[in-house]
Design a protein around this nucleic acid. Structure first.
Lengths: 145, 145
DNA sequence: GCTTGACCTCAAGTTAGCTTGAGATTGCAC
DNA sequence: GTGCAATCTCAAGCTAACTTGAGGTCAAGC
């Protein structure tokens, strides 16, 4: 840690639990933008730890890196984000959490009420109709929503 | 639907919302085992709809296909699973739901208490220490969990 | 000045979960 | 018995999110 409080990538990795390669990858995807030393090495701000934590949480909630980037772009450019900035941006996240909890509670309910009961009247069964719109189009992994 | 109540793959796809290719893929992974007509076409039992629904739900909860297969293997071989069978097997799922809800509630709490407050005392901050063990080793996608 | 470990770039590989395409066959309806 | 949609197999492609490897540079200590 030098007098300017700039962290090299290894330090940041140690502090967030991420791999160095992952952080570089995130830079590539414009989720984080470190400055460079004269020798072309990355130097991160302390507040980037928070940025990465935000990414980790958002990912856990099922947001893709592209979406996360879109969210992070709402943070102020040029200055270090403060409490208010973070509060504003985490609104999306908070909504997502609430929605997911609600959904899980519904699934649990359905699980007890339907698979548990052995009903075969498929038209009536919540579980069998719950999954109806899960299939999107195109290639690639289908998981996460 | 013929007199034996066996469904061709397209019918099953229509009923579950899955793509035909996905169902074939699941067969490949031994998640479902249809019988064949003399002409080598797949025919599914009605109860396979339930099986697929189970797969969809388990996936949503973050279980991988391998884990799901392990769960499904607990169902009785040879006979059509009844209510009790499904009830037994969905115990794992129910626990998982409870755990996830608890986790989400914790994240929400942390979000309000930490990112919201703007504290910079990182050592104390729940959020920054929450993600510590997320990084596993090896290749491939890191998401799902 | 030399060594050593952290850092750099860029290309290619990996995993899960499917989809797409080609080329052939089946089976229900008329 | 003919047509046409639905099926079949098998190989290859795709996407997200990273990791791995090769080959080279930087910087702090001795």
């Amino acid at each position: 840690m030098n007098c300017n409080d700039l962290l090299p990538i290894g330090e940041l990795a140690r502090r967030t639990g991420l791999a160095v390669s992952a952080i570089r990858f995130y830079e590539d995807k414009r989720l984080i933008e470190p400055i460079r030393t004269s020798g072309n090495q990355r130097r991160f701000l302390r507040s980037d730890i928070r940025r990465l934590s935000f990414i980790l949480i958002a990912q856990r909630l099922g947001l893709g890196l592209t979406e996360i980037e879109r969210e992070l772009r709402k943070l102020p450019q040029g200055r270090t984000p403060n409490a208010g900035d973070w509060h504003a941006i985490s609104g999306t996240i908070r909504k997502r959490i609430d929605a997911q909890i609600a959904q899980l509670e519904k699934v649990r309910e359905d699980l007890d009420g339907c698979i548990g009961c052995g009903c075969l009247s498929l038209n009536k069964c919540a579980l069998f109709n719950a999954g109806d719109k899960w299939g999107e189009s195109g290639s690639g992994p289908r998981v996460l929503r």
